[in-house]
Design a protein around this nucleic acid. Sequence first.
RNA 1: GGCGGCAUAGCCAAGCGGUAAGGCAGAGGACUGCAAAUCCUUUAUUCCUCGGUUCGAAUCCGGGUGCCGCCUCCA
Length: 482
Amino acid sequence: MPLKVYNTLTRRKEKFIPLDKNCVKIYVCGVTLYDHMHLGHARAVIIFDVINRYLEYKGYKVKYVTNFTDVDDKMINRAKVLGTSIFDLAKKFTKEYFQQIELLGVKKANYYPRATEHIKEIIKLIKQLENNGFAYDKDGDVFFKVRKFSSYGKLSHQNIKDLSVAVRVEENKKKEDPLDFALWKKKKKEEPSWDSPWGEGRPGWHIECSAMAMKYLGESIDIHGGGNDLIFPHHENEIAQSEGATHKEFAKYWLHNGLLIMGKQKMSKSIGNVFTLSNALKKYNGETIRYFLLSAHYRSPLSYEETSLKKAASSLKRVYNTLQKIERIEKKDKKSSPNKTKIEKEVSELSLYLKEVEEKFTLAMDDDFDTPVVLSIIFEGIKRANLLLNKTDYLDNLSYELLLKTKEKIKKMGKILGLFQEEKRENLQGKEEDLIKILLNIRNELRKEKNWALADKIREKLDNLGIELEDEETETIWKVKK
RNA sequence: GGCGGCAUAGCCAAGCGGUAAGGCAGAGGACUGCAAAUCCUUUAUUCCUCGGUUCGAAUCCGGGUGCCGCCUCCA
C-alpha cells in the first residue's frame, strides 16, 4: 500500500511519491520566538514529528527542516515592551522551545534555521525576483508584484479578483497594488536592520521561509507543512516568491494541520484563549500531552477541554498497565500448561491480532496519517492481551511469547507516535525503592494477620505520596502516579 | 461579500456507499478482606434537518439550520 497524503494544493489525497526516491525533503513553518508556546503550537510540532517518523519507518531518508521566525513586527514590539532586544528575546524562547519539545519527546529536525542568520540568502532571493520582474523597490521598501504571478491563489484556491475585493487593511500607499506584499522592509527608527542593495532594512515575513527552505533543501521540496491558518497569505506568498524566482515548483505536497479549539475558537494568542505548554507540562508529562494531541486526525480541529489531558492520562495508563503486566509476567517461565483449553480462545484471538496488526497499522498511517485509528488498533491489542493475562493460572510458554510479541508490536507502533516507550515509569532512587519494598513486606505481613486497618493505612499514606498499590494474587505492585 | 471546513452517545473522537472503531466518564456484575487493576454487560435502531440517487447512505447529490477557519499577525 502506498502512502497517501492530503494535499491542500489539489484538495485531495494523493499518492506520496517523493521527487528523489531516496530522500524526502520536508519544511515546516515553525514558531515566532516572541512568547511562550501553547498547546496549539505543540500540536503542529507533534504532528509533523509523527509524519517525519512514519516516513522513516517507511524506509525513506528524511531531511526535515523547521524554522524560527526571529525578526518581525511581533518580535520588535515585544522586545520593546520588555525593554530587551529581539536577539535576547529569541534566545530566551529558543531555549524554552528546545526544553519543551524534548519533554514532548520530539525527534529533532535536521536544521532549525532562523531569519536573522539568513539575510544574505534572503537578499539574494529578492534580487532574483527583481531580475525576473516580480519585485519592485519603492524608496527602500521592496514589494512582490502579485498580479505578475499568474497562478497566485492556487494554494488557497482564491482568485485575484476576490482577493482584491477583500483587501480591507489600511493600505500601504507605496504599494502599486494592495495585493502586493513586502519582501524587504525599510528600516524605521530604532528597528533592527541589515544592509541591503535597497538600503537598511529587514526581511518581510514570508521571504525567510522561501530562502531557508531552498538553502537547506533545494529549489523543489516534497512536503511543506504548517497550521492551516498559514495557507493564506503566508504559504500562498511563499509559492509566489519561490516559483517567481526559480520557475520551478516549490513544494509538491502541502500539508496543513487543523487547529486546536478552545471554547469554540482556535487557541490563539490574539484571542487570548491559550493554555501554555509550560502550564500543561506542570500538571502532565509530555507523553500525556502528546497522546491528547494525537487523539484526533491531524487535519481535524481538536477540542481542548478542561478534562482533555486527564482523559489522556487515563488512557495512557491503561496501556502502560498492560505493558507492565506483561513485563512482570514474562520473567516467570512456565513450561507446563495446566489446561490448554482454558486459554484456547484468548490465544487464538491474540494470535490473529498479531498476524494482522502491522498491516492494519500501515493501512491507517498510509491513509493520510490516521493516528486515531492507530490508537484504536493499539487498544484492541491491549484488550486481547488483558483477556489472556487474566488467565494467569493457565498461561504457558506459548502464551508468554504471544504476550511478549504483543508488547513489542504495541511499542513498535507507539514509537512512530512517540508514545508508550517508557520502560520504567517509576523513576525513584534506589534507596526509595528499597524503602517501599520494606513497607510492602511489612504490610503484607499485616495482611496475613488480617490487620486490615493498619495495612490500609499504609496503602493510604503511600497513595498520598503518589504511590499507588495494587494487591495481586501473589504480590503487591506499586506504581508512581503520573 | 469570497474561499474552505465541520455537525456521530455525557465528553473526546474514528469511519466517508454495505448496515455505527477506540478512549474517557457513568451504571450494573465478576474478581478482591477492602481497594486497585482487569474482564463481562450496559450507554447512538442511528450519525443536525428536509428531500433525492441507490438493492443499500453517517458516508454521494440538492435545499435548510448551526458552528468554525482563512481573506489582517497567527501552528
